[in-house]
Simulated assay, not measured.
Amino acid sequence: ALAERGLRRQLIEGGPRLLGQFVAAEALDELCLTVSPTMTAGGAQRIAGGPSVAVPTRFQVASVLEQDGFLFTRYRRI
């Protein structure tokens, strides 16, 4: 419905389930990921949770910025 209105770009923010839904639908074109200089451990899940995909989608680095040890990365689907 959004594409029919000429709105072809969307920015979504959410957790692993929402990201997993976009991955499963092959609707993820770009991923912005922040890496913190903090180490922890535990039972955390993957970055994207949801149904498995038959063939993993490949991404390439589009940009990397660093500030105070944080890495701000942007990846684009190949």
Rank of each mutant, 00 (worst) to 15 (best):
L2Q: 11
L2R: 14
A3M: 04
E4M: 03
R5F: 02
G6I: 02
L7Q: 15
L7K: 15
L7P: 01
Q10F: 09
L11M: 12
L11N: 11
L11D: 05
I12L: 14
E13D: 13
E13L: 07
G15L: 05
G15S: 05
P16V: 08
R17K: 15
L19E: 04
G20D: 00
F22T: 03
F22P: 00
F22C: 04
V23I: 09
V23N: 00
A25H: 07
A27P: 04
L28P: 03
D29S: 02
E30W: 06
L31K: 06
L33K: 07
S36H: 12
S36A: 15
P37W: 03
T38H: 14
T38Q: 10
T38G: 01
M39E: 07
A41W: 10
G42S: 13
G43A: 14
G43K: 13
A44T: 04
Q45L: 12
Q45E: 12
R46E: 11
A48I: 09
G49F: 04
G50K: 08
P51D: 12
A54S: 14
V55W: 10
V55S: 13
P56H: 13
P56Y: 10
T57I: 12
T57P: 01
R58F: 04
F59V: 02
Q60E: 11
V61Y: 12
V61L: 15
V61I: 14
S63D: 13
D68C: 05
L71Q: 14
L71M: 10
L71T: 05
R74M: 06
Y75R: 00
R76P: 01
R77K: 13
